[in-house]
Design a protein around this nucleic acid. Structure first.
Length: 276
DNA sequence: AAGGTAACCTGACTGC
DNA sequence: TGCAGTCAGGTTACCT
C-alpha cells in the first residue's frame, strides 16, 4: 500500500495521538522483518517520551531521547492507532509489533514482511546519517525538488526515466503507481532515456510529481480517522487513476487503449498517444 | 559507476 | 473444490 502519500498520511494520523506521550512497553511478537527487529527495544525505550514523528522518504522516524525508531512499511505494512492500550484486540498472525503508550497503542502489521523497524542511537549522530537514509534523494514536496534538480540529476543517465524516478536517488517517494501517473501528466514516455529529458520537460515532470503526490495526500487526509481503530484503511488509492492498472482501457484524455509494459521487473502503464 | 536482476514473503486472483 | 501459476504499492545486495 504505502507510497509516500500513505506514509505521510500515516504520520499525520498517528502523531497527534502519540507525540509527547510516554511509551509503556514494546512487544515484538515477530522480529523477522526485512532485517531483524533489534533485541532489547523494550528495555531501551520503556518510559521514554516520544519527542516527535517525522518522515524521510517512505521512512517514519520516531524520535526519543536515546535515539530514533525507523519504521518502513514495505509493500504491505500498516501502523495503526489502537485506542485502548489496556484492552488491545488479540493480535493477528501478521501483527508483529505493538508500541504501547499511555493512552493508546500503535500496532505494526505487515503480512509480507518487506518492511522494517530499526533503531538508530543518538550516539551515532543524527538519524539522517543512518545508512538507509544517507544517500536518499531530495523530498519531492519541498523546494529542493524542482525542474533544475531533476534536469541536473538525469544528465548522462541512459536508464529509462520511469526507472530513474522510481530509484529514489534523485527524488524520494515516487512509487510504482505515481511514477506512471506523473509521467502521464507530464506527457512523457516512460521509456525515454532520463538523460534525454529537455529542460522544459524536466520542469513539467517535477511539477507533475509534486501535484500527483500532494493530491494523493489530500485524498488520504480526508480518511485520517480511518487510521484510528482496528480495521481502518486509507482510501486514497481508490481514486481514479489516469493510467495505473488500466491496461486496455481507454485513455481518459484521448481514448487510446492504455498500454502495460515491464521495466525493471515492475509494470508500467502509459498512453501511447499522449506520452511521447 | 551505472545498469540489470534476484531476492526477501504472503495473499489475492485466474485458469484448468 | 483444489491446485498451480502469476502478480502485487519496495528496496537492497550482488552481479557484470
Amino acid at each position: 500500500m504505502p507510497e509516500l502519500p500513505e506514509v505521510e498520511v500515516t504520520r499525520r494520523g498517528i502523531a497527534p495521538h502519540v507525540a509527547g506521550t510516554r511509551i509503556a512497553r514494546i512487544e515484538v511478537r515477530n522480529a523477522s522483518l526485512r532485517w531483524p527487529v533489534p533485541d532489547g527495544l523494550d528495555a531501551l525505550l520503556r518510559g521514554e517520551t516520544l519527542i516527535g514523528v517525522t518522515r524521510r522518504g517512505k521512512y517514519l522516524l520516531l524520535e526519543y531521547a536515546p535515539g530514533w525508531l525507523l519504521v518502513h512499511l514495505g509493500m504491505t505494512g500498516t501502523l495503526r492507532v489502537m485506542p485502548e492500550p489496556g484492552a488491545l484486540p488479540v493480535a493477528g498472525v501478521h501483527d508483529h509489533i505493538d508500541l504501547v503508550f499511555e493512552r493508546c497503542a500503535l500496532r505494526y502489521r505487515d503480512p509480507r514482511r518487506f518492511g522494517a523497524v530499526l533503531f538508530h542511537p543518538r550516539s551515532a549522530g543524527d538519524v539522517l546519517l543512518h545508512p538507509l537514509l544517507a544517500s536518499l534523494g531530495v523530498e519531492p514536496l519541498t523546494d529542493d525538488f524542482d525542474g533544475h534538480w531533476l534536469y541536473a540529476g538525469t544528465r548522462g543517465r541512459t536508464v529509462a526515466i520511469k526507472q530513474a524516478l522510481l530509484a529514489g536517488s534523485i527524488v524520494v517517494g515516487v512509487g510504482n503507481i505515481y511514477a506512471s501517473e506523473s509521467l502521464f501528466r507530464a506527457g512523457i514516455h516512460p521509456r525515454m532515456p532520463a538523460g534525454k529529458l529537455s529542460r522544459p520537460r524536466a520542469e513539467k515532470l517535477a511539477r507533475a510529481v509534486k501535484d500527483v503526490l500532494a493530491a494523493a495526500i489530500e485524498k488520504g487526509g480526508s480518511t485520517l480517522r480511518d487510521f484510528v481503530g482496528s480495521d481502518g484503511k486509507s482510501g486514497y488509492f481508490q481514486q481514479e487513476y489516469f493510467v495505473y492498472d488500466r491496461a486496455g482501457q481507454p485513455c481518459r484524455v484521448c481514448g487510446t487503449p492504455i498500454r502495460q509494459i515491464v521495466q525493471g521487473q515492475r509494470s508500467t502503464f502509459f498512453c501511447p498517444h499522449c506520452q511521447k
